Simulated scan of single mutants.
Amino acid sequence: MKLVRYRFKYPYAQSRMGIIEGDRVLDISELQQELIAQGVLDAATYLIPSDPQVFYQQAQFHIEETEKLLMHRNAASLPMHKRADVILESPVPNPSKIICTGINYADHVKEMGSDIPSYPVLFSKFNNAIIGPEDDIHHPQTTKKLDYEVELVVVIGKKASHVKKEDALTYVAGYTIANDVSARDLQKRTPQWLQGKSLDHTTPIGPWLVTRSELSDPSNLAITSYVNKEVRQSSNTKHLIFDIEYLISFISSLMTLEPGDIIFTGTPDGVGLAMSPPQFLQAGDTVTLEIEKVGTLTNRVIDQ
């Protein structure tokens, strides 16, 4: 199942939860109401929230309820909306924690002139940086070295604290794609990377969340980035230094993870900074990210 957060294109439309199916979006709440009206579901059935913020507060529970709902989908006419009539937004609204992992592919460590870390290198982003899959990446005037980074993103489904590695994936709601766009000149000014990582409107996430029931094993996925259709990064999640199970276990030993929190798992080699000469993003560029079994994320770069 591929979950989307979407809104209609008319002004002031509210975000809603849906399921992407080809070039159409199936609205979860509308489907449930239709099934109740048809008598397929009891009127006292628990109502799955249409508000994404509420949905992700109990992400795993609501995903399971949605999967049950889909078992009845042929019993009613489907409230489908054309993709052209809606705008897809970043899958998770306002996550309480955006935790990023640096230098987590060995070849990327090498190209950045770093050492293999003994522990995951963690840093944060903030919600001001997050944009949707159909939004433009802003190129601020404060940087001359804006770079791309394709990353597999984990979305937490239920509260996680001191999780054992062998149990870690049971805490996952699903997976999506992010471009950890980085201002290298700002990032490198100090030992802490934050100032180069959370610029306004620079981090697209999406286009949807692939649930854990559809993608049970994230450990062997091709991961690729393109700039203006030219391949820049090409690797596989099997090359992660710290795999997803370890990251969840390690991070949850430091802090409690809540439903809707997101973890960036790191980027492979091939970033613009490491090219000879370096190739940074410019206004007018198009960046496309692909992760096997997850999807494709494409955004244009514009001047801020």
Results as ranks from 00 to 15, higher is better:
4 V>W: 03
144 K>C: 02
304 Q>V: 02
91 P>R: 06
169 L>E: 05
81 H>A: 14
66 T>C: 11
180 D>H: 00
143 T>Y: 03
195 Q>I: 14
29 S>T: 09
177 I>D: 00
162 H>D: 10
139 H>Y: 13
296 T>Q: 07
174 G>Q: 05
292 E>A: 01
59 A>N: 07
64 E>P: 00
77 S>R: 14
56 Y>K: 07
162 H>P: 00
16 R>L: 15
50 S>P: 04
48 I>T: 09
20 I>G: 01
50 S>R: 08
10 Y>F: 15
235 S>I: 04
137 I>C: 02
271 V>H: 01
135 D>E: 10
246 Y>V: 05
303 D>P: 00
156 I>C: 08
35 L>D: 07
161 S>L: 12
13 A>Y: 10
247 L>M: 10
247 L>C: 04
294 V>L: 01
68 K>A: 08
256 T>I: 03
2 K>M: 06
186 L>N: 08
68 K>L: 13
166 E>L: 06
269 D>P: 00
177 I>W: 01
234 S>M: 05
151 E>S: 04
298 T>W: 00
214 E>S: 12
17 M>L: 13
152 L>R: 06
105 Y>N: 08
256 T>N: 03
200 D>N: 14
103 I>P: 00
38 Q>C: 09
56 Y>T: 05
238 K>M: 12
242 F>W: 11
281 L>I: 02
146 L>K: 05
86 V>K: 08
260 G>A: 10
202 T>Y: 05
221 L>V: 04
237 T>C: 07
249 S>W: 03
235 S>Y: 01
231 V>M: 12
177 I>Y: 01
55 F>M: 06
8 F>C: 09
104 N>F: 05
293 K>I: 01
304 Q>E: 15
101 T>G: 08
101 T>M: 07
151 E>A: 01
140 P>H: 04
60 Q>S: 13
194 L>R: 02
52 P>S: 13
219 S>P: 01
226 Y>W: 12
5 R>G: 02
67 E>S: 05
72 H>T: 01
61 F>I: 12
277 P>K: 07
269 D>N: 14
168 A>L: 07
165 K>C: 07
92 V>L: 11
117 P>I: 11
181 V>Q: 03
130 I>K: 06
19 I>D: 09
282 Q>C: 09
56 Y>W: 15
171 Y>E: 03
2 K>E: 15
281 L>Q: 03
135 D>M: 04
23 D>N: 15
193 W>Q: 06
267 T>P: 05
6 Y>E: 11
194 L>V: 12
49 P>H: 10
96 S>V: 04
274 A>L: 11
180 D>E: 12
35 L>N: 12
166 E>P: 04
121 V>H: 02
227 V>T: 07
221 L>R: 07
245 E>F: 04
295 G>D: 06
201 H>F: 14
304 Q>T: 10
295 G>R: 04
45 T>G: 02
240 L>M: 14
229 K>W: 02
40 V>H: 02
214 E>T: 06
118 S>E: 15
73 R>L: 11
264 F>W: 13
81 H>K: 13
50 S>E: 14
219 S>F: 08
98 I>G: 03
15 S>E: 15
246 Y>E: 15
93 P>Q: 11
261 D>P: 08
